[in-house]
């Protein structure tokens, strides 16, 4: 079956959804991503949906699941590039995606993932400085 490619960039996983996402494919992405997070011990996951023309209740739920699952596995997830028309439609549909971390574009999403790692890192360096 066709799969959505997952890229490893540094300690982050990158996914750009470029195809019309059918339900099985969305579920496969959810599985693949969680497996991959564990395998490479990724610290973060960035999902670029700037090519997605719709997010309906099913795709929305899959995005929510991915965020919840990666959080359980100790990684942060950020969804970037949602189109205005898609965002307006989601609000009208009544889909609550407030659990998602979002950013305008890939650059800002990456910056966000790095920022989220920093408190832990600086805490570590503080501790080592104290010793």
């Amino acid at each position: 079956m066709e799969r959505i490619p997952i890229l490893l960039v540094g300690e982050f996983l990158l996914v750009s959804i470029q195809v019309d996402l059918h339900d099985r494919l969305a579920l496969a992405l959810q599985d693949d991503l969680t497996t991959e997070v564990v395998k490479v011990r990724a610290k973060g996951v960035l999902i670029d949906i700037s090519s997605l023309e719709i997010v309906d209740s099913f795709i929305g739920r899959v995005l929510g699941n991915i965020a919840a699952l990666t959080a359980m596995l100790g990684a942060n997830a950020v969804v970037v590039g949602m189109r205005p028309a898609v965002a307006i439609t989601i609000v009208e549909l009544g889909l609550d995606l407030s659990c998602l971390r979002t950013a305008i574009n890939v650059d800002q999403g990456m910056a966000m993932l790095r920022l989220l790692l920093r408190p832990v890192a600086s805490q570590g360096s503080d501790e080592s400085a104290e010793k």
Partner: peptide, 12 residues
């Protein structure tokens, strides 16, 4: 308020 919610979904 809907616009604010949509903006938040987009990351703003």
């Amino acid at each position: 308020l809907k616009t604010a919610a949509a903006a938040r979904l987009m990351g703003a």
